[in-house]
């Protein structure tokens, strides 16, 4: 019950935050450019077309009125038409969301599965050879540009060794989506060939996203475990002679995990940001490639839509992380 109240309280912050986000994107698209209509129409559009756009989108109205229009549009799911695809931006984005999510979720799973145990073990064996090796990996992982790592992997595994496909998400045109998550769809259909194909395409793009994420998780888990190890309750448990394995794997781990969980929201944000460049390298048909193409085409509506959309997704993810944390940590309730 208290949890429900807490979730409700957190959710109440959503509308103002989203409104703030809309205001930021509105400022970028309507206030920064000296002539938003010109930007919308494209550099070479004739004057008449620019003027028509100006009237059509009310760009000649006072700013507060424009903002009001903008908010009503966004709330009703209208983010304008993409210059490039000639379709509503909102439709484009929704269609591409599953591809990006599939990539991000696999990257996250991999990062957590590898990062947590490595973080715990390197904290327990502090200054051991393993700890030093893990430190080298995390320090490089955090310093690597994701797109560069993506290109290197592509160069090595796809182009030189021919182990994985160079680009795309699946062989052929791809099936009619059920959920849009190809691996999940394949399982739902019982189509193992499709599962294998989509996993082969996933393998490489997942890596440049997962490695920096893993580095962050290792770092926080290690620091968290060390921090908890020096806490008073661990001292008490040792003084009372509780078995070491119980102290570590039950009490220390649980506390450290909560710290790591707070980072998951941040890591997810980095994954979404990394997806823009990594998807571009592998032509992965998700939000990132969409954003990349929009930048190349100066497709203005599409970019602003992408920003709003990604921001909203990120805000929702953070909300979920907040609630999950409250469930795990009794103090937050």
């Amino acid at each position: 019950m208290r949890l429900l109240a807490l979730a409700a309280r957190r959710c109440l912050w959503m509308p103002p935050t989203l409104l703030g986000l809309t205001l930021i994107v509105f400022s970028i698209s309507h206030i920064i450019p000296s002539d938003p209509a010109r930007v919308l129409a494209g550099e070479n559009a004739p004057i008449e077309q620019v003027e028509a756009l100006r009237r059509k989108f009310g760009l000649d109205l006072p700013l507060p009125q424009q903002f009001f229009r903008y908010v009503t549009d966004v709330v009703s799911g209208n983010m304008g038409i993409s210059l490039y695809t000639q379709r509503p931006v909102a439709d484009d984005l929704l269609e591409r969301l599953p591809a990006t999510f599939e990539l991000a979720i696999y990257a996250m799973i991999l990062a957590v599965l590898l990062g947590l145990p490595l973080g715990v073990v390197s904290a327990l064996r502090r200054n051991s050879l393993l700890d030093h090796a893990v430190r080298v990996v995390t320090i490089s992982g955090l310093a690597m540009a994701a797109f560069w790592l993506a290109i290197l992997l592509q160069l090595l595994f796809s182009m030189k060794l021919n182990l994985t496909p160079v680009q795309g998400r699946i062989d052929g045109w791809g099936p009619d989506p059920i959920t849009g998550f190809y691996t999940l769809d394949a399982v739902l259909r019982g189509d193992w060939e499709m599962l294998g194909s989509s996993l082969r395409y996933l393998a490489l793009p997942v890596m440049p996203l997962a490695i920096p994420a893993m580095a962050t998780i290792v770092r926080f888990t290690r620091a968290g475990v060390l921090n908890v190890m020096s806490s008073n309750f661990v001292f008490y448990q040792n003084a009372m002679g509780l078995p070491r394995r119980v102290v570590i794997w039950k009490y220390i781990l649980r506390s450290a995990l909560i710290g790591t969980l707070t980072q998951i929201g941040l890591v997810f944000g980095n994954l979404l940001a990394g997806a823009v460049v990594v998807e571009a390298v592998f032509s992965w048909p998700g939000l990132g490639t969409y954003a990349y193409n929009s930048i190349l085409q100066s497709d203005y509506n599409a970019i602003m839509g992408f920003t709003l959309f990604t921001g909203t997704v990120f805000i929702c993810v953070n909300l979920l992380v907040d609630i999950a944390q409250a469930v795990l940590d009794p103090r937050g309730r």
Binding site: N232, F233, F235, Y236, M240, Y251, S255, L328, D329, R331
Partner: peptide
């Protein structure tokens, strides 16, 4: 031999 700590606040794990 058992122990009563100085700090009853931090000597419990907050999560259990």
């Amino acid at each position: 031999i058992t122990f009563v700590p100085q700090d009853p606040f931090g000597s419990f794990s907050p999560l259990f």
